[in-house]
Amino acid sequence: MWPDAEAPVGAEPGGGALGVRVVGVSRRFPGVEALRGISLEVKPGELVAVVGASGCGKTTLLRIIGGLDRADEGRVEFVDAGGAAISPGRFDLGFGFQESRLLPWRCARDNTALPLELAGVPRAERRRRAEQTLSLVRLADRTRSLPAELSGGMRMRVALARALVTKPRVLLLDEPFSSLDEVTRLELDEELLELRRATGATTLLVTHAISEAVLLADRIVVLGTRPGRVREVITVDLPERGLDRRASAGLAPLVSKILDLISERAA
């Protein structure tokens, strides 16, 4: 399980997205059973959304996958394109959180470069890569701005750039745009899709917004509440992606199906 101390410092990604295999993961906190027997498989390069009511354990699941929390039972594996299980290196996972978590005393470039800096990448190199990544999120002209000088949407873009700067093979996003207004959020959703096309990283997106999940994802994992367990995995079989999907006839039935699943009481 991540992290792996053996991974070479500053290594370039080994190339190619990784798959994620979650096997029978359970987690309990004092007085609460958060997750029970979760199993799911994410193929390399796939975008999977995890949806569920508040408190269903979506965030806990993502944190266990990312190695920020431990499972009481079960395990998480990462597999390469050939299907072999590997230990992810320190640059292989990218994290996005609900809050931007930018350091207020650092400009956009230096915030973006933080994971490289902490891994000992030389200054010139990490600055170049940070600036490159910032231009991916359309902030090439704001690299020296401090967080306080950026809008909420821009701050989230910087946070996204920070997650991407190590060229991760798996991107773990925990409700990354939930604090933004609807218009900005749709904008960023579109950008996320573009970034994925550019990087090809496997993406796990935890969200409480069903519409977002439906617009972006290849597959949607619906979690039930208390204990959190997989209620259903839905393959989104719609043409197009992002905003273009809104026109699709299959969209509305899918949204109401997921809503029904989430609002059902016991399984």
């Binding site: 992290p3 920020l68 320190r90 994290f95 959180f97 978590r101 350091l103 994971p115 902490l118 891994a119």
Partner: peptide
């Protein structure tokens, strides 16, 4: 949350103190 960022990047105690 900031501390977690540094933990994710496997920053040591001194670096976390100095930079965060």
């Amino acid at each position: 949350g900031w501390r977690e960022l540094f933990r994710i990047s496997r920053a040591g105690r001194f670096v976390t103190w100095w930079k965060l």
